[in-house]
Design a protein around this nucleic acid. Structure first.
Lengths: 347, 347
DNA sequence: GCTAAGAATGTAACCGGTTACAGTACAGGA
DNA sequence: TCCTGTACTGTAACCGGTTACATTCTTAGC
């Protein structure tokens, strides 16, 4: 690895000049700059990142805090790969990389009281690595931990967790609007007994989807029935159980909006187990548009999230805060209702 | 952030001693060590990682090279999340983090001739960041690019690509054994016309699965018929097309082993489209055990890969090379046949 | 009591950049 | 011609650790 000093020597200039060429090219005369650039290219020189981070007190890396929540074992993020790809490509165009932070605090994994590892530990790591900012992925319902990040003063952008602070914001889908659209769609198909299976308490997107469900009912001129709202946890099993509970009523719903595709699949299975045919006897709409949605039988009508949009939006917001061009407003990505077979519209 | 010099001052020792406490504690007297440790804990001191990386010429980070292959748009790694979680937890226990490397060379994404970004660029980034090693994820079939990594002298471990070099190895499933087991299972169920839909040419796991298919036939005493081997590309569509082709023969197979679950699902759809019932008219076995496998109808019998094992094994191998305790032999993780409904064994 | 080996610690030179500040050169104005 | 402002470049002090080598302090052996 060739160093800046060597390049400087080869060009007959000082290291400072070489550094300037890479950092504030406008302050270097054209001839000098071109000469340095040529030699640097020839010897494949780029400034060493460790040295640069140390000197600038700022690295070209953004941390990713993504913890598994022991309280939700087996939980899969519905679109982690798209999220990472989106982040990666958006960050790379600004020269940043993504550092997947890991706490060595494995004890936590066995500690039943905490879902997120100590945020303090993460903030410390962030400082020691001179990270430029943090991306936080919701991995449960531990809002307190997120607040600690928001208050640390580090540029933070959360995915699917409402976060606010001096340099913090978040990106999420417009969950309420998406849910409302799903419900209006069901109402337009003639349903007037529409139930919902919600996500876990304390989870922001879950709450927004429930709110959207209510709004959708209101917009369709339908009454809100509290006994048509059952609580789930985003997992398939809870969709199954919730649906079974709903079907056990005297006047069961004819349609259900599940706050996740996983739960919608569970609902599908419960309907099948009850001898009902979907969509003839029961219409089902989910949320997320995960891969399996198009594969189950009947194919699931669902509210699709803008998966690549998350990465782009999160990276954009984070870079804005890193560059101190202000704290962006929270991003609410538009959703899109994908009509397949489970709602009965395609009959 | 408190520095080592400040800790040293507080303890009445030199920085060197503080450094020793964190790096070679045995060389420091017990009383001094305990004193430094106490003060460090009290002031929440840990060595700055940028400075440490610069000074040691080695950071506590491992790079992850994971490119999307434009030639396979929409390709999802069958178990990226498990892989990352496994890597993360195994690395974290040794104090390492995972750096998702991104090349700013976005032009590549539009360049139809190259699948991987320039490996040279990645090697350069690795050096500039003083990364301790690299994890390479197969993202296509560009074996040449991987060879460049292997020859760079950096500790490298590849996932699902055969890699060898002075400090390179790889981890993959025992694809041949898994495929052979699947075929023997079908044979044991009475099938004697067993076809296969392979993965793309040039892909190592695909080749191994095809080899396993042949071995399985031989072990079951069945003849190998070349017209029962159709080439796919791991995607669902190719499974559909391949199956349709197989079914068009005069004496179509009664069972098919697909080298990926995606293709198996495609085969399922093709069978349905041809008016065949699975497993009554056609037995289907896949490979991977992705999430949808248990959800399709009929539920897919498949060769499950040890998903968390990949992360653990890759991290272990990499750490061994980093610590210069030798270059581990390639790891072939055992697979496990998961019998569900599509093979007919559960009738 | 003296010496030498060994243990513990300190000194200072790195690692490879960035940047405040100082210095030089040159153009334009008086 | 001299002065001043601007443009460019160089010097050197950081950033915060690590570590070779020097130094000091013990302690054992004679």
């Amino acid at each position: 690895m060739v160093t800046a000093r060597e390049i400087a020597q080869l060009c007959g200039v000082s290291v400072a000049t070489v550094s300037r060429v890479f950092n504030r090219p406008a302050t270097v005369s054209a001839t000098t700059r071109e000469n340095v650039e040529r030699v640097a290219r020839e010897f494949d020189f780029s400034p060493n990142e460790s040295a640069r981070a140390l000197s600038r007190q700022r690295s070209a890396m953004v941390g990713l805090v993504w913890d598994t929540d022991h309280r939700r074992p087996g939980w899969r993020h519905p679109f982690l790969q798209d999220l990472l790809l989106g982040l990666k490509s958006a960050l790379s165009s600004h020269g940043y990389h993504l550092l997947l932070l890991a706490t060595s605090d494995d004890a936590r994994d066995r500690n039943p009281g905490v879902s997120l590892a100590d945020p303090i530990a993460y903030v410390g790591m962030t400082r020691r690595h001179h990270l430029a900012g943090l991306v936080l992925i919701d991995s449960g319902t531990d809002a307190d931990a997120f607040a600690t990040f928001a208050q640390s003063g580090l540029p933070c952008v959360a995915v699917d967790v409402a976060l606010s602070g001096p340099r913090a914001t978040y990106v999420t889908s417009d969950n309420a609007a998406g849910a409302a659209e799903a419900v209006r769609h069901l109402a337009a198909l003639g349903h007037d007994r529409i139930a919902t299976i919600t996500g876990p308490r304390g989870n922001a997107p879950a709450a927004a989807r429930t709110e959207g469900y209510r709004r959708g009912l209101a917009e369709a001129g339908l009454p809100a029935r509290e006994d048509f709202v059952v609580t789930g946890d985003f997992y398939r099993e809870s969709g199954f159980v919730g649906m079974r509970r709903l079907l056990a009523r005297k006047d069961p719903p004819t349609a259900v909006f599940a706050a996740s595709d996983e739960m919608a699949v569970g609902a599908l299975l419960a309907a099948r187990a009850a001898g009902l045919s979907v969509p003839a006897d029961l219409a089902v709409v989910g949320f997320d548009d995960i891969e399996v949605a198009s594969l189950v039988d009947p194919a699931l009508t669902t509210v699709a999230q803008d998966k690549p949009g998350f990465g782009t939006a999160a990276a954009g917001a984070l870079l804005a805060m890193i560059d101190n061009t202000g704290v962006p407003e929270p991003v609410h990505l538009p959703t899109k209702l994908v009509v397949r077979d489970s709602c009965g519209a395609t009959r």
